[in-house]
Design a protein around this nucleic acid. Structure first.
Length: 538
RNA sequence: GCGGGUGUAGUUCAAUGGUAGAACAUCAGCUUCCCAAGCUGAAUACGAGGGUUCGAUUCCCUUCACCCGCUCCA
């Protein structure tokens, strides 16, 4: 049985994950990687970088891709110019105003709750509802009548306002019947929930120097688009990848590292011709799903969830989430590992012209009450000139955005297995094994002398030293060999190399496989090559 | 942010208004030729702050963290 409790406890016990600042009681939503965890996470990030960026061959067209393409990397700062977040839309989106209902204890986005004025005799109240647009009027009528204790036959005695308006357009909430309340005036004052971490540039900085820790790494790529074009001779279609920390002040961090306040992203912004964006979207969506499977996530536990048309910004051809059946979720529910979004030209154009209004088509710059751009863009030309087509255009963007910490968590959950094997007394013992893919396993191989005598430790140490030049290895000569095997099972080490009597005679060692428990005999000199073959990847 | 629950050793759990125990894990030694064996020994814990009390890990308050449900999740 995979329980989150067991996984969390193993992570702590073996040094995969610790709570941040634990000796002071911990900090909500912050987690540290221990000695094993840091290797696992590094391996995952390196596998991503290798498979997406460094190892990409721009000369060959992948089978399923519309054409060949280039990939380059980037590493941007966490603190950026404040205007970046205004034009990206994060400044507005992350400054939600929320109200709490004192009666129902529910919380609502202030600008998302709508309703109508309802009048009966001398009394006028504002009935709010979360119902869909189509059923909104009926819901307001029903709740309004209930409030005034009217029967169906009295339906015409109340007057319902023609206009459906949101709470933020009201002067006060004292006459408001909250969506889940029976009484009036149960809402608190709207309060700001700032989901971005505010910080200050410069030691003496005041409010005008305020900026934010980035809530995503993507914007660093967009604002460097021109720099990359000018310096690296890449041509559309091409992608820019980045791995780095991002910060979101989550209201309710929970579920171990799944929703952390400080987390690491692995993002690609892929720039292509608008006419080809749909094909590229499908290519990246399928390729990214396969990547997780190739590293050992079971396809039964993964789903690709395409967002419905109504969830999409109008400029987007599609957005899909790759989701994993985390053990802390109820049966049949999935948590997001990665989102692949078609972003059109929203980002590049917003950084050129000023923040666009995504609800307009074609998109125009969002204006303030004076008819000026609400947030001014950089004014720099971020379009692309295709010399072959003789065409100038703003590329469309496909964004595969993965959470590194969520990936690590998914692989930990997937790897955790318990099986039962009889010990030498015939008593059943539980064996805990982390079946991590050899490519991401923190330790690739452990080296043991079978016993701590007869010159076996000396030979084993020599092998250890040689292997260390090629991969992460672990040396252990303490206690019974069975116990040492079990320890490595919990760490997810795929191979254990044991020096025995035969080694002293013919220089062969046994290689024990973590999953099959099978042992094969290999000559010492071939060990590094053989292990690298079995680990796969690069 | 709301409601409920839980905080004791590295882990999983006991007990107690007056000296805090166990199992496994860890370390040292002996033993050991292939899957958590055995023997001997060792180290290690009451989340934090305040209050009540002669005395608090235990009772009370506050706080922090974790778990469950709601809420939120661009």
């Amino acid at each position: 049985m995979k329980s989150m409790e067991k996984i969390v406890s193993l992570c702590k016990r073996r040094g995969f994950l610790f709570q941040s600042s634990e000796i002071y009681g911990g900090v909500q939503g912050c987690w540290d990687y221990g000695p094993l965890g840091v290797e696992l996470k590094r391996n995952l990030k390196e596998a991503w970088w290798q498979d997406m960026i460094a190892g990409h061959n721009e000369l060959l067209k992948p089978d399923t891709a519309p054409s060949s393409f280039e990939m380059v990397g980037l590493d941007c700062t966490i603190i950026m110019h404040p205007q970046v977040w205004k034009c990206s839309g994060h400044f507005d989106l992350f400054h939600d105003h929320m109200v709490d209902c004192k009666e129902s204890k529910k919380r609502y986005r202030f600008d998302q709750v709508r309703g109508r004025w309802v009048e009966y005799q001398d009394k006028k109240i504002f009935v709010s509802t979360l119902a869909e647009i189509e059923t909104e009027l009926d819901d307001v009528r029903r709740r309004g009548m209930k409030f005034f204790r009217l029967r169906n036959k009295d339906a015409d005695k109340i007057t319902i306002g023609d206009e459906s308006i949101t709470l933020d357009k009201l002067d006060s909430t004292t006459e408001v019947l909250a969506p889940d309340a029976k009484n009036l005036d149960t809402l608190t004052e709207p309060r700001e929930f700032n989901l971005m971490f505010k910080t200050t540039l410069g030691a003496l900085g005041g409010e005008e120097d305020a900026t934010f820790l980035r809530p995503e790494t993507a914007q660093g790529i967009f604002v460097n688009f021109k720099n990359v074009l000018d310096s690296s001779r890449v041509r559309v279609p091409f992608g820019i990848g980045q791995i780095g920390k991002s910060f979101r002040n989550e209201i309710t961090p929970r579920n171990f590292t799944f929703r952390s306040r400080e987390f690491e992203q692995m993002e690609i912004e892929f720039f292509c011709h608008p006419n080809q964006s749909q094909e590229w979207y499908r290519y990246w969506r399928d390729r990214r799903l396969n990547w997780y499977v190739s590293l050992g996530l079971s396809s039964d536990s993964l789903i690709m969830r395409e967002h419905h048309q109504e969830e999409l910004a109008h400029y987007s051809v599609g957005t899909a989430d790759i989701e994993y059946a985390f053990p802390f979720l109820p049966e049949g529910e999935y948590g997001e590992l990665e989102g692949i979004a078609h972003r059109g030209d929203f980002d590049l154009r917003s950084h050129m012209e000023g923040k666009l209004d995504p609800s307009t088509s074609p998109m125009t710059v969002e204006l303030n009450e004076h008819g000026k751009p609400k947030y001014r863009g950089s004014g720099k030309d971020l379009s692309y000139r295709d010399e072959i087509l003789g065409e100038k255009f703003v590329p469309h963007v496909i964004e595969p955005s993965a959470g590194a910490d969520r990936g690590v968590l998914a692989f930990l959950c997937e790897a955790f297995t318990e099986d039962e094997a009889p010990d030498e007394k015939g008593k059943m013992q539980t064996r805990t094994v982390m079946r991590l893919h050899p490519r991401i396993a923190p330790i690739k191989a452990a080296v043991f002398p079978l016993v701590k005598k007869d010159g076996m430790p000396e030979v084993a140490r020599e092998i250890y030293g040689d292997l260390k030049k090629h991969m992460t290895v672990f040396y252990d000569e303490k206690g019974a060999v069975g116990r040492r095997y079990r320890r490595q099972d919990e760490a997810g080490t795929p191979f254990c190399i044991t020096v025995d009597t035969e080694t002293l005679e013919n220089q062969t060692v046994t290689v024990r496989d973590r999953d099959s428990l099978e042992q094969s005999r290999i000559h010492m000199d071939e060990l590094a090559a053989e292990l690298q073959k079995r680990i796969g990847g690069v």
